[in-house]
Design a protein around this nucleic acid. Structure first.
Lengths: 123, 123
DNA sequence: GTTACCGCTTACCTTTCGGTAAGTACTATC
DNA sequence: GATAGTACTTACCGAAAGGTAAGCGGTAAC
């Protein structure tokens, strides 16, 4: 189960911090979250992803997909049609990110509200 | 030119993604988590932080502290002693990060285990 | 045979991040 | 008057992330 007692003693803190850094490292970069969310919704081909995730270049997309595959978030399925079709799909492991992304999302939303309010105060 | 928003097919998803990006943006960079954790443990002065968070330079520390202050994670208290002492402390708002950091930490821990295992398989 | 689509790769460039070293303004101490 | 400490700022630099544009090997349609 998930322990919610974060930021305890100094000693435990260091280990916890390492975990957090590890997690953020995997989710780092401008595109990873968008790609995971896109593929969790439905499996897609290279060009389809590029169309949906507007603004990403082929170079970066190829790099990010490799990265996500290495980390077991997606699989690259090659179908021997003519021409070969390559379909990327989210693994079940991507689902384990749900609660993480959920927490991040909830926090991000209330944080934006807070920033808005403090901007109103200042102006 | 850019035609659509990110992931236009699913409104909820797009909003959620934006929140996640916002959250991660605030927690971004090499030092933010370490600084928040350090100041949550106890309020500190500039040089004290620099000693504790080994490796950070004065320039980066000053920049990060400004950033954290803007986002309401810390306050900069100036005491009119001679010479003035400036003490940084974590706000109560830093506590709202607890569940987020908790989820990240738990996920990061199990992810590291998983990576270890898959490396064993390959070698 | 030229064009076009697919799934990339390559070369090149810009922007951003972070690091080092030095300097600054002030006070205090020797 | 020289030195040291505090809390930074400034100038310069290298690495990495990310963007642009072009190419490439295959297939296939016109």
């Amino acid at each position: 189960m998930i322990r919610n007692e974060v930021l305890p003693s100094n000693h435990e803190c260091a280990g916890s911090l390492k975990n957090v850094i590890d997690a953020l490292y995997v989710l780092n970069g401008k595109w990873k979250r968008a790609l995971i969310l896109s593929l969790v919704q439905s499996s897609k081909r290279f060009n389809e992803i590029q169309k949906e995730v507007t603004g990403i270049s082929a170079k970066v997309l190829a790099k990010e997909l490799k990265d996500l595959e290495l980390n077991d978030f997606i699989t690259r399925n090659v179908y021997p049609t003519t021409p070969v079709s390559i379909i990327y799909e989210a693994t079940g492991y991507s689902q384990t990110l749900k609660s993480v992304i959920g927490e991040l999302s909830a926090w991000g939303e209330q944080h934006r509200e807070k920033v808005k309010q403090s901007m109103r105060k200042q102006s």
